[in-house]
Design a protein around this nucleic acid. Structure first.
Lengths: 115, 115
DNA sequence: GTAACGTACAACTAAATGGTTGTAGAAAAA
DNA sequence: TTTTTCTACAACCATTTAGTTGTACGTTAC
């Protein structure tokens, strides 16, 4: 119910966050480095504010979190977020398995009934 | 180079397609059933045309394909598409592995150098 | 043959997205 | 202390998105 709703909302945000090449690149940099926002910003041909917004999108999707260090804010990748997204895709593949299994069952019962 | 560009473009489309709860639900239905577009449309509180557009988004992302049967068009889920998306997320997790390995190496060399 | 069904597609609207510039404050450096 | 750096956030703009209705056309059913 409510949990489902939340899950869907989270999935919306996570996949949306991953649907942009810049943000995906940011993810790889954050996994490796946990750079500050301004360091991150140096890597892209856009304003600091734009980069800041991208980070916010990733953050609200639970894919990164911000960690203050003095006047700068380090962007650290959240493994749990990526994991959760992976698992969601896994559920789809599981559905396929289920379908194939049912198909196998059908063949099985068909054989057993002697056709 | 070009391949990379294409890959990024595909990833954009795939994750964007998955970033909508309606489309994710459509995917599960297509995995199970391969329903026609109009059958699919019965399941959602929106116009046929809207559903048609969602299917197009999934199709352009390589997550489903359409297969004509008489006057109707069956929507069949494409396992390869889902697989490819899964693999992409897998690469991120792999990055983490890489980082942890480097960390281990660091510890290793630190120990070896006798501190 | 005619009516009904399933699809395709164009044109339109409202809202969200990705970018910009500008302002302001807190921390570090000079 | 003054200046610079890093961050936050508001306001604005152009484009895309998700939805709508309406029209047109091939296929199936009567």
């Amino acid at each position: 119910m409510v949990v489902e709703k939340d899950n869907e909302l989270w999935a919306d945000r996570a996949f949306h966050a991953l649907s942009d090449a810049t943000r995906r690149d940011m993810m790889t940099r954050c996994v490796r480095n946990s750079p500050s926002i301004s360091t991150l910003a140096l890597a892209y041909p856009m304003s600091f504010a734009a980069v800041q917004k991208h980070v916010t999108v990733l953050e609200r999707a639970g894919l990164v979190s911000k960690q203050r260090r003095g006047r700068e804010q380090l962007v650290v990748a959240e493994r749990s977020g990526l994991r959760r997204a992976s698992e969601l895709l896994g559920e789809f593949e599981q559905l396929w398995r289920g379908r194939l299994d049912r198909f196998d069952d059908l063949l099985q019962s068909d054989t057993e009934s002697g056709h």
